[in-house]
Simulated scan of single mutants.
Amino acid sequence: MANNIGRAWREIATAGTLKAKLVILLYRMSTLWCRRNPLLRLTGLPFVILNKLISECLFSVEIPHHTRIGYGLKIYHPHAVVLGRDVVIGENCTLRQGVTIGNVTHRDGTTSASPVLGNDVELGASAIILGAVTIGDGATIGAGTVVTKDLAPGAVAVGGGFRLLAARGDQP
């Protein structure tokens, strides 16, 4: 636990702006609510509420406490970021403003699994990742790119060309 606290403080110290530091701090503290220890759960409850009030209502950044995010997260210009509750993000990932990562609700009411991102993944502004996709370690997703298919480690997905490939059903 002491190791995780140290990693969290280093993550927050390097997060950039005060707004980014606050968003990451509130997320990390709200994850205490998911622990089995009753004392930690009780400690985490106020941060779940603060995460909702400050991050979501004030900054428009939705990172539920159920989302699993590795240490080293960086959020540049944290505004309009939406992560689904079952999303898994690896270590040292970078998100920019307007990023959306989540599952897909089908017409029949069923939902897909949520995306899983590897380590060192970088997402440009307004990038969208939807559905049961896996993004490999070191992948880069450009600004405004919609990803609905798996990406190999180190892959680069950018703009309209990638959307066209995904729309035709081809593998990128």
Results as ranks from 00 to 15, higher is better:
residue 72 G to W: 02
residue 115 P to H: 11
residue 121 V to F: 12
residue 169 G to E: 01
residue 3 N to T: 12
residue 28 R to T: 03
residue 152 A to P: 10
residue 20 A to Y: 07
residue 38 P to M: 01
residue 127 A to P: 04
residue 36 R to C: 06
residue 6 G to Q: 10
residue 140 T to K: 12
residue 119 N to L: 05
residue 64 P to T: 06
residue 131 G to W: 08
residue 15 A to E: 06
residue 105 T to Q: 10
residue 7 R to W: 10
residue 90 G to K: 07
residue 23 V to W: 06
residue 9 W to L: 15
residue 166 A to M: 08
residue 170 D to N: 15
residue 40 L to G: 00
residue 99 V to Q: 06
residue 106 H to T: 08
residue 43 T to N: 02
residue 1 M to T: 09
residue 84 G to I: 02
residue 121 V to H: 10
residue 30 S to H: 01
residue 66 H to W: 09
residue 1 M to Q: 15
residue 125 A to V: 09
residue 137 D to E: 09
residue 114 S to L: 06
residue 84 G to A: 03
residue 137 D to G: 09
residue 2 A to E: 13
residue 138 G to K: 12
residue 111 T to E: 09
residue 104 V to G: 13
residue 143 A to S: 11
residue 131 G to T: 05
residue 36 R to E: 12
residue 161 G to A: 03
residue 136 G to Y: 02
residue 74 K to N: 04
residue 151 L to D: 05
residue 44 G to S: 08
residue 37 N to T: 07
residue 172 P to L: 11
residue 153 P to L: 08
residue 158 V to W: 09
residue 10 R to F: 14
residue 150 D to G: 07
residue 75 I to Y: 03
residue 30 S to G: 04
residue 163 R to V: 09
residue 101 I to N: 14
residue 101 I to A: 11
residue 63 I to H: 02
residue 78 P to A: 00
residue 95 L to V: 02
residue 9 W to S: 15
residue 97 Q to N: 08
residue 90 G to S: 04
residue 103 N to E: 12
residue 109 G to H: 11
residue 44 G to L: 12
residue 113 A to K: 13
residue 152 A to R: 12
residue 42 L to Y: 12
residue 5 I to S: 04
residue 86 D to S: 15
residue 23 V to I: 03
residue 17 T to Q: 10
residue 4 N to L: 05
residue 98 G to N: 05
residue 73 L to M: 14
residue 53 L to H: 02
residue 88 V to T: 15
residue 49 I to M: 04
residue 31 T to C: 03
residue 64 P to I: 04
residue 102 G to S: 06
residue 9 W to T: 15
residue 117 L to F: 13
residue 96 R to E: 11
residue 146 V to A: 07
residue 160 G to M: 15
residue 65 H to G: 00
residue 128 I to Y: 11
residue 151 L to M: 11
residue 1 M to A: 15
residue 125 A to F: 08
residue 7 R to Q: 10
residue 148 T to V: 15
residue 31 T to W: 00
residue 62 E to M: 01
residue 113 A to F: 13
residue 124 G to A: 05
residue 62 E to R: 08
residue 124 G to R: 01
residue 63 I to Q: 00
residue 75 I to D: 02
residue 126 S to L: 12
residue 60 S to K: 05
residue 45 L to K: 07
residue 109 G to I: 13
residue 27 Y to I: 02
residue 85 R to T: 12
residue 30 S to A: 03
residue 100 T to W: 02
residue 41 R to W: 09
residue 96 R to I: 01
residue 147 V to R: 10
residue 134 T to L: 05
residue 136 G to E: 00
residue 65 H to R: 00
residue 109 G to E: 13
residue 39 L to Y: 08
residue 139 A to D: 11
residue 28 R to H: 04
residue 76 Y to Q: 06
residue 90 G to P: 06
residue 153 P to K: 08
residue 40 L to S: 06
residue 162 F to K: 04
residue 71 Y to S: 11
residue 25 L to P: 00
residue 136 G to M: 05
residue 41 R to L: 12
residue 75 I to K: 01
residue 102 G to N: 11
residue 130 L to E: 03
residue 164 L to V: 10
residue 48 V to N: 02
residue 34 C to Y: 04
residue 14 T to I: 09
residue 41 R to Q: 11
residue 32 L to V: 15
residue 133 V to H: 05
residue 16 G to I: 05
residue 64 P to D: 03
